[in-house]
Structures are given as structure tokens and as C-alpha cells.
Design a protein around this nucleic acid. Structure first.
Lengths: 193, 193
DNA sequence: CTGCACCCTTAACCTATGTTAAGAAAAAAA
DNA sequence: TTTTTTTCTTAACATAGGTTAAGGGTGCAG
């Protein structure tokens, strides 16, 4: 497997915190690389989430089944992003979610214990994650807001405007779920154009 | 003003990271205490958010006016919680939000520069905020999910079940907005009981 | 090449919630 | 107390989006 791919992680961390070569080494040593075929589950409900994953190639989604058995997508993430069930990962309680690859993918994964150690060895990593969660929280609030106060059509248009890669690479059913609407409604919205 | 109130902040930080006495001192020295009357704006749209606030007494909400002029509440926070417009605070770009006290309040505030310094002097503070944002992100995702896939009635019932202080202390109009519905709809839901 | 999943679309009908408007109740101010 | 302001309720009507059901397209597996 292409070794240079690992450095995508380092590249993105370096955007926010400046690492020394020996720190980069320690970080890379803490992650395990995993190749995963399309539609493979990295986590299932009832299991404890053992890893956060940095996607270096491909993509994944997290979803769950509600009481009525309907499937709802929580997150869709392509390469150069993180995905996990953070709640289960940090609390070490059973997850409610599936985590499944959307395409053939390569991920770097790290367990909570190794991450804690890494924070000690490379404190900048804790800074990196502070900034990461901070941004994720801000984004999540913005998404919450648009879900509460904008129409599905407006939300879809924003997604188009951002020229989001996701639109090209995942089925519309998934995008509808991610937008919080039924696939039929997304069809209706698309017809208007 | 009661000096012991400041230690509420230290008490809550100590739940997640163990501070030494000299660290507690440095932290307290970094925050400014501010007493604020009810319905006072701590931030207005167009201003750059200068502080994150830890509420030691009282409460506050953040809200904005959309293109149609309608008011939407983003967050409602009572004592022992943080409130700010993080996006504006960390980017130092103009905010889109109001930040306003719900009651007569006492807050501890810190500017981005002082916070950066504090991270250097007391690295545990960065760990504290990493954990804080991590939890905030997880909560925000859960709220996003319930907004997308549960009815307003279900969301309101959950709020009751959590026996949320907010229900007793802020007007229903605000609660409706926080739930993402019109005040009339909340009235309708309440009538059913 | 064929058949079977899977995905997307359409249309008719349904429902939760929004909107508008009015008035009642409660809280704050005078 | 009386007045004014704010908050809450109700009801009739409007609408975005959900639901159900059917059919068509596309691509992979055999």
C-alpha cells in the first residue's frame, strides 16, 4: 500500500499545529492503516466504538435505525475527514450506530488508549483535536440551524452551491437522508429546476 | 460581589482535569467578572465577539434575525455553562448573532488572546476545552438528529423528561424557537396533555 | 445476454406544523 | 390600583414535506 498516503494525515494536522519531525513520527506510529472494501461495516449497533478513523481514501457514512425501523444517516464523510461514533468511543458504551464505507477506502485508525498516550507524548495533538472539535461543533450548530429554519429546498441548494463532492459520489437516497428528508421529496425538489 | 462564585468555574474544570492550586490561580486571574442586568446584549450582529462567557449566575440566549426578519434562538444557557459566538470569537470576523441575558446574571469572560496565553501557561486548560467542545459537538449532533427525525411533540416531551430548568425560567416563545417551532405550535402541543 | 438488485421518478393523497388574526391572561410599570 | 406590555391560547386556513404505490432506468452478477 502506498506509504505516502499516511502523510495526508500529517499534512492536515500541520495546517493547524506545526509538528517537528519526531512528533510526526510518533503520530504516524500511533495509527494503524486499514484497507476496506465498499459497503463494509466498521461498527454496528451494540458494539463499543474502538476507533476514530481518518479517511485517507474513499468515504464512509454513519447511520442508525429508529424505533420504526427507518434508516437515518447522521454523517457522510469523504477522504481527509474524520469519522467515528464519538459518544461511544469516548464513553466506551455500546453504540447506536452503523459505520459503513461508501466506497473502497483506506483509513487510519486510533483507539482511545493510544490516543490518550499520544496526547501525553505529543501535546500538540490535544491542541489539534481541540481545534477539530471546536470547528466540528460550529459546523454542527450551523447545520442544526439550517435544518430548523430553512426549507429542504434551500438546504439542497446550499449543498449544490458548495459544489459538494458528496453529490457526485453517493446515491441520492443517502443525500436525502443527510438533508433530513424523504428520497421522494428530494426528487420533487430536483424536478423544479 | 461574592468572591466564592468564581470557584464555580474552577469546580467545573476540576471535574475533567485535576488542577494544582497555582494553576487555579492563573486561571482565575485570566477571567474578568461582569455583572449584567436582565435583557442586556453582550453581543450584537456586526460586532466581533470578544469573549466566551462562563455563566456563574443567571442565563443567556443567542439568537439572530433571518432575511425575513424573523427571530430564531440558537442557544439557551443557564448558570454553570458557557455561551459565546464561537465562530466570530475564533475567526475574529463580525458576528451574525445577538447574545442577551435572560435574567440578571454574573459571568466570567475571557478574550481569545488571554485564552491563548492561558493555554500556554496551563496546558490542562486546552485539554479542558478539548473535552468541552467534544461534548458540545456530540450534544449538537444529537439535537440535530432529533430535529431532523422526531416530531416537535417528541422533542418537547424529551425536554420535559430531562426536567430541564429552562422550562421553568424562560418564556415559552423562546422554548418554541429553541425547539425549532412556532410558539402557536407549542401551545397546541401543550393543550393535548 | 439476461435477470435481478438497486436507484430514481412521478403522482395522489395525508399530516404536522406554519400563518394569520384575535383575544385572554399574566407580568411589569406607573 | 390602574395601565401597559408581554406572553400565551385558540381556531381557521395554508403548505412543505411525508407516505404509499407504481413504473422505469441502470449496472452488475451469473
Amino acid at each position: 500500500m502506498d506509504e505516502s498516503l499516511d502523510h495526508k494525515l500529517i499534512y492536515y494536522i500541520n495546517k493547524w499545529v506545526k509538528l517537528k519531525p519526531e512528533e510526526e513520527k510518533k503520530i504516524l506510529a500511533s495509527f494503524e492503516k486499514q484497507a476496506v472494501k465498499k459497503k463494509i461495516k466498521l461498527l454496528e449497533p451494540g458494539q463499543i466504538c474502538q476507533y476514530i478513523y481518518f479517511i485517507i481514501q474513499g468515504g464512509a457514512r454513519s447511520y442508525y435505525h429508529d424505533a420504526k425501523g427507518d434508516e437515518h444517516i447522521y454523517q457522510i464523510r469523504l477522504e481527509n475527514n474524520w469519522i467515528s461514533d464519538l459518544e461511544s468511543y469516548f464513553s466506551q458504551q455500546p453504540s447506536k450506530f452503523y459505520l459503513e464505507t461508501l466506497e473502497e477506502s483506506i483509513v487510519l485508525r486510533i483507539s482511545p488508549e493510544v490516543l490518550e498516550n499520544l496526547y501525553k507524548e505529543v501535546p500538540k495533538m490535544e491542541r489539534y483535536f481541540r481545534i477539530l472539535f471546536q470547528k466540528a461543533y460550529i459546523n454542527s450548530l450551523a447545520r442544526l440551524n439550517s435544518t430548523m429554519w430553512e426549507t429542504a429546498e434551500e438546504r439542497y441548494n446550499e449543498m449544490i452551491k458548495e459544489n459538494c463532492d458528496i453529490l457526485q459520489r453517493v446515491p441520492q437516497t443517502y443525500i436525502a437522508s443527510y438533508l433530513g428528508i424523504a428520497p421522494e421529496s428530494l426528487s420533487r425538489i430536483r424536478k423544479k429546476k
